[in-house]
Write a protein that binds this DNA or RNA. Sequence first.
DNA 1: AAAATAGTGTCTGTTAGACAATATCCG
DNA 2: CGGATATTGTCTAACAGACACTATTTT
Lengths: 214, 214
Amino acid sequence: MYNAHAVYANTVIFSYTGGSVTVILERSAERKDSEWGLPTTPVSSTHTSLSALEDHLRTFTGIHTGEVTYREQLYTTEFLVNAQRAVCISYIHICHETAWHKGAGHIGLFPLGALPKLSQLDQDTITYATDRLKAKAVYTNIVALLLPGDFSLTMLQDAYEIITGRTVDRRNFRKKIISLDLVTKSKRHAGSPTNTPQPYHAKDVSLRILDRPL
Amino acid sequence: MYNAHAVYANTVIFSYTGGSVTVILERSAERKDSEWGLPTTPVSSTHTSLSALEDHLRTFTGIHTGEVTYREQLYTTEFLVNAQRAVCISYIHICHETAWHKGAGHIGLFPLGALPKLSQLDQDTITYATDRLKAKAVYTNIVALLLPGDFSLTMLQDAYEIITGRTVDRRNFRKKIISLDLVTKSKRHAGSPTNTPQPYHAKDVSLRILDRPL
DNA sequence: AAAATAGTGTCTGTTAGACAATATCCG
DNA sequence: CGGATATTGTCTAACAGACACTATTTT
């Protein structure tokens, strides 16, 4: 076939762990220019890029679909691999922080500010994904989707500030979050002291466009 | 090659003509389910999707790159054609209104509200592209990129209202356009009457994210 | 003279953003 | 009692949005 291309899929998986926005990377022996890289899979003719990626994430990285709170297609790049034309369809995944990162040694969890050496392509993909995340942090509820099920408003604000690079006033931030109806109070654990943060959970299960920006 | 796919590129070309937002479509004998469709080209192994698309637009639709004021990748879809896996990389183009639409009979210019029967895929692509355009109309200068070189603020507002579906107050709209520094006064034609609209042109040549939404 | 088009300013309600003090718990 | 954490309200400036009239030209 005169215009045959190899097809790959990869993804930038964001989560929020230990006070940082993190990306999941895979260690791969095949890579020559870098030890780590984005989770990537070839897309065979019997799969779509999404199903191939889901399979890969499940078996290789141990992420179940249920932990994914948001996903979108990012960009498709074209390049040469062994003098053969290829395309790579890239995605973003947003995950709750969960247990998967305690998994095998071939995956790693890296804060955005401390990424290892990566191929130029992976680097660009992460930069682009981060820009999108940053933009969406302002006019959607995406930050709430990144945090674990229960979180304090302070955590939410920290994540927001890290992602957007701005710092905002505590009171104004809380006022806005409440007025936009982004969160619901969770039950405090019985007998927990008053100066323990009030836990909240995201009101929405999926992405929501806000009436006004954060 | 076990994961070989055919690759195509297509695009939704927006312009603003005769008071409507329009899309350029091609007439094609190959299509079975519809007479018209988005400009589409196969991507051979010697081209990228973009260069293939540029070639196609130049030779088939008569659009020079200089008339394109904005372009972005939209989405990549995967589907079957003759039991063969294929992917299609879709783009948006934003063009000034120009002379190309007076061209050959195999292309047509259709207002968004009066599209002909299309394949489901093309229909979905246009819907998605329109949503993007609508969103960008509010927080970027994209509407100004759609209009011809010189335009009146009334034209700008008309285009904005058609794209977003809102209607806004004339004075408030003008105030905002001026305060956001989106336009510059063009010279009036000598001897044109006073109740002729003051012509403006877009201050920016390319997409700009606005400080605040329109 | 009537109709069409272009252009312009004020006022009010709401939101954004700056700002400081108090209560509880733990050691 | 001192230190750390969590929570809460007011005031001001800026922006969003509602609103009506005048000048010019054409028929």
